[in-house]
């Protein structure tokens, strides 16, 4: 069963210089108990996607077409109070900056109590829950940690507290938006392992957004590759990393300095810039930068699926 199904999602923004197509025909699934990674570089539409799921698009943005099915319910049809019921309970989020989730003037314990406001448990039971959650994210000295304020913790600890708070209500879906980007390598690894453990204990699904290919490879079961507002390829992590079908995925993997085990002074790159999303022409979105571009690429490429891995590219038809 799929916890989240995105079907043909199209999102546009009205700007002073015309309409911007931020997402075009985005479709993918987040199955139960799986960690799905979204990889993409700046401008690929990751943030727009998250905001559409959470119903937090800016005033000038609108879902033009498509469905966001969460546990079978179309989120684009819910009103703001129905969405609020879901956020933080069934769908929770962790962001790059943990201070976005933590209130600086309220103690950690009180904040963790607030999250459980719907629950009928007594206050001391709720506090026990909070302490238990801190234990799960490996915060030492839990009783005193509950009385402390966010700024008294280091960056890595703050992020773990933010994760604890996101997991508190045992959501069905955790959306993690670059949660390790601001952390150092040793803490990054620790945070990934923690997320993995918690996901297994709670049995939720995770939508993990990152531009760090190494982290995605390590953590995720499935990968969705986005480029300039489109899903260019999706498949299992092994499929994507070992047998990329779309030229963009292929080049992206080659570019990562971490991918080269041999020391080289000259690193591969993808020449060119991402296209202007206000001047969208028909045809393949990656054509302008593609190393195997042909005339046919001026027409919209087909979605080709092989053994559950699918990509949008003409090359695959032949």
């Amino acid at each position: 069963m799929n916890i989240l199904e995105i079907q043909n999602l199209n999102v546009t923004f009205d700007t002073e210089d015309g309409q911007l197509r931020a997402l075009r025909d985005v479709s993918f699934n987040v199955p139960e108990h799986r960690i799905v990674g979204i990889v993409g570089e700046s401008g690929c539409g990751k943030s727009t996607l998250i905001n559409s799921i959470l119903g937090l698009l800016a005033d000038n943005g609108q879902v033009e077409k498509g469905k966001i099915l969460f546990e079978g319910q179309n989120l684009t049809e819910l009103n703001s109070s129905q969405l609020r019921e879901l956020r933080g309970v069934r769908i929770s989020t962790v962001f790059q900056d943990p201070m976005g989730a933590l209130n600086p003037v309220i103690s950690v314990g009180t904040q963790m109590l607030h999250i459980q406001y719907r629950s009928s448990l007594s206050k001391s039971e709720k506090l026990d829950n909070a302490a238990e959650m801190l234990r799960r994210v490996r915060i030492p000295d839990r009783e005193s940690a509950l009385t402390r304020y966010p700024h008294e913790f280091s960056g890595g600890m703050k992020q773990r507290i933010a994760i604890a708070m996101a997991m508190m209500m045992e959501p069905a879906l955790l959306i993690a938006d670059e949660p390790t980007t601001a952390l150092d390598a040793t803490l990054e690894v620790a945070t990934i392992e923690l997320l993995q453990d918690l996901q297994q204990q709670i049995g939720c699904s995770v939508l993990f957004i990152s531009h760090h290919l190494g982290v995605i490879a390590e953590l995720c079961d499935d990968v969705v590759v986005m480029y300039a507002g489109e899903v260019v390829e999706r498949g299992t992590t092994r499929q994507i990393f070992y047998r990329p079908m779309h030229p963009y995925t292929e080049r992206l993997l080659q570019c990562d300095p971490a991918g080269q085990s041999e020391r080289t002074r000259h690193l591969p790159t993808i020449p060119g810039e991402i296209p202007d999303l206000r001047l969208r022409t028909p045809g393949c979105i990656f054509a302008a930068r593609c190393h195997c571009r042909e005339d046919i690429c001026d027409s919209t490429p087909p979605e080709v699926e092989i053994e559950g891995q699918s990509a949008r590219c003409h090359r695959l038809v032949a």
Binding site: A185, E188, V189, G214, V215, A217, R238, A258
Partner: peptide, 8 residues
């Protein structure tokens, strides 16, 4: 601690 882009 350096995550590498190689799942296996």
């Amino acid at each position: 601690a350096n995550p590498e882009p190689d799942p296996d």
